[in-house]
Design a protein around this nucleic acid. Sequence first.
DNA 1: TTAAAAATGTAGCCAAGGCTTCATTTTTGT
DNA 2: ACAAAAATGAAGCCTTGGCTACATTTTTAA
Lengths: 145, 145
Amino acid sequence: MPSDATIPPSVLDQKNRFDRARAAQSQVLLEDYTEMIDDLIREQGEARITEIAQLMGVAHPTATKAVARLKREGLAMSRPYRGVFLTPTGMAMAERVRVRHRIVVDVLKAIGVPDDAAEIDAEGIEHHVCDRTLAAFEAFLRRGA
Amino acid sequence: MPSDATIPPSVLDQKNRFDRARAAQSQVLLEDYTEMIDDLIREQGEARITEIAQLMGVAHPTATKAVARLKREGLAMSRPYRGVFLTPTGMAMAERVRVRHRIVVDVLKAIGVPDDAAEIDAEGIEHHVCDRTLAAFEAFLRRGA
DNA sequence: TTAAAAATGTAGCCAAGGCTTCATTTTTGT
DNA sequence: ACAAAAATGAAGCCTTGGCTACATTTTTAA
């Protein structure tokens, strides 16, 4: 295992930046499923694997795998042949994601993006909005663009 | 292969939406490498595998694989042990990506996002900005200035 | 000029996140 | 109550994008 000792700092920064980008990408799946499960529980009282799969546009074993990962990460709970529920941690994530989603959509619309494009693009954009950027978005909305 | 005949249209829409999302994600790699290669050629006259790899924060065989894919997709050309070049198609993509990146950064800054956060988040956000949203961004910048 | 260093290529492994197929458990309808 | 349907689980495969290790070619420097 070669150490990073001979790699110049600027490149290390670059590498770390991309490492973070990849970690963030792996976070996207967690956020999307958590949000979906939260939506289903709110709207239908429970989140079933089959419905999660349909709404996420994947086959049900794919949703099963994703839920298994949510459980490993402490975001969800479930028992065989039963619905999926969020842990307090999972609920907190769902809430953060929900708030962030709404803010991103509102900012896009405030800028003049058509409503449907705003909704669609927000789904991809929201995962890349850091806390400081989100704070700036909120401030922008408050001072009423 | 089960047909989609029995799946309600709303779910089909959902599925297609996510299929598109996944296809878009696969596009991200193409855009990132194309942009990097274009940058290197502009700044240093050529793009070598080793440098591409360093700047992308990956090991060199990973960059080799990515370049192989760029070649398959008609975006790049190269010969063994030589630099990588972009095809006209690749150059066009690089130009589009460059313009889009600048617009996204400018919009974020105009909204009040700190410069460094704007640069960082734009890297992730830009790939999810569709043409209509980009047009709205441009209009926003023009009338905001 | 030629040996060492650097760059590149090749092979093969891994994990994640898709998929299909088939087995099992629940749910439903008669 | 019980057979059919629906939902879920389990196994196993594929592709992508990472990685390391090693082979080969170019470049560099003595």
